[in-house]
C-alpha cells in the first residue's frame, strides 16, 4: 500500500510537550471555508424558493429577485471551490477494506465505543461517504442548476427537461443539506475536530484515537518534526486546550 494513499505530503507530526499533527494547510482551510460559505448561502437562498414557509429567507439577499439572480452564481463558485477540495482530498478518500468493517460497526461508533473499531487512515468511512456524497450531489446540482438557470440558458433545454431538472435539483439540494447536517454534527460531536479546519492541526491524542493508521503512517514515514530540523514547532499550550475542550 503506497504511502500516498495514506497521508498528504503536507501532513506532519510535531513532537513536543503535547504532540500535534498538521492536518490541513492554510490553502486547504481557505478552500474549505469558501466552499462552506457557498454551501450555506446556497442552502438559504435555495430553501427560500423551495418552500413558501421559507420564502422570508429571501429578505437576507435583498428580496426574491435578488435571491433568484444570485443563487446560481454562488453555485458556480461552489462548483469550482469544491473542485479544489476534490483534487486535494480524493486520494485519501478512496474506499479501504477497514471502511467496510467500520460501517458494519457503526452502532459502536454512534455510542462512542471505539475499542472494537479498526485502525483508520486520515478519513473514516463516514467522512468518505460525506466526501463522495457531496461530490456526486454537487455534480447533479450544477448540471440540473444550469438546466433551470433561465436567465441565461432557457433555450438549451425543453420544458419537459426543465421539469425533471427542477425535481432533481430540489431532491439533490435536500440530500446535500442532510449530508451537511451530518458533517457539521460530526465535527461538533467529536471534540478536537474543529481545530483541524481552524488552526490546521489536531492533537496527537485525537489522531491516535480516531485515525491511528494515519498517525502511524506519518511516524513511520518520517513525517515528523522533532524540533531539530523544522523551523517552527507548534506552540505547546494551544493544542492542549483544543484537546481539553
Amino acid at each position: 500500500m503506497s504511502e500516498r494513499y495514506e497521508i498528504d505530503p503536507s501532513d506532519e507530526v510535531h513532537v513536543g510537550e503535547r504532540v500535534t499533527v498538521d492536518r490541513y494547510t492554510k490553502a486547504a482551510r481557505l478552500n474549505h471555508w469558501l466552499t462552506a460559505a457557498c454551501l450555506v448561502l446556497l442552502a438559504i437562498s435555495g430553501l427560500a424558493m423551495f418552500h413558501p414557509d421559507l420564502f422570508f429567507l429571501s429578505a437576507l439577499f435583498g428580496g426574491g429577485q435578488n435571491t433568484r439572480a444570485i443563487h446560481p452564481w454562488i453555485g458556480v463558485v461552489l462548483f469550482f471551490s469544491f473542485g479544489g477540495l476534490f483534487l486535494r482530498f480524493w486520494r485519501l478518500n478512496l474506499w479501504r477494506p477497514e471502511d467496510g468493517t467500520w460501517m458494519r460497526r457503526l452502532y459502536d461508533v454512534l455510542i462512542n465505543k471505539e475499542d472494537n473499531l479498526p485502525e483508520l487512515g486520515k478519513y473514516n468511512a463516514g467522512q468518505k461517504i460525506v466526501f463522495w456524497g457531496m461530490s456526486l450531489l454537487i455534480l447533479i446540482l450544477i448540471v440540473t442548476g444550469l438546466a433551470i438557470w433561465n436567465q441565461y440558458f432557457s433555450e438549451y433545454t425543453t420544458v419537459e427537461q426543465k421539469r425533471y431538472a427542477l425535481i432533481l435539483h430540489s431532491a439533490a439540494a435536500v440530500t446535500i443539506i442532510c449530508v451537511w447536517i451530518v458533517h457539521v454534527y460530526a465535527a461538533i460531536w467529536v471534540k478536537g475536530t474543529f481545530s483541524a479546519m481552524i488552526q490546521g492541526y489536531v492533537t496527537g491524542g485525537w489522531a491516535w484515537k480516531h485515525h491511528r493508521k494515519w498517525l502511524k503512517a506519518l511516524v513511520s514515514g518520517k513525517h515528523v518534526d522533532d524540533g531539530k530540523a523544522a523551523p517552527a514547532p507548534a506552540p505547546a499550550g494551544k493544542p492542549g486546550q483544543a484537546a481539553a475542550e
Binding site: 507530526v13 513532537v15 503535547r18 504532540v19 492533537t203 496527537g204 491524542g205 491516535w208 498517525l215 511516524v219
Partner: peptide, 8 residues
Amino acid sequence: EEEAKQLT
C-alpha cells in the same frame, strides 16, 4: 495523548 506521545 500519552499513547500518541509514546508512539512519536
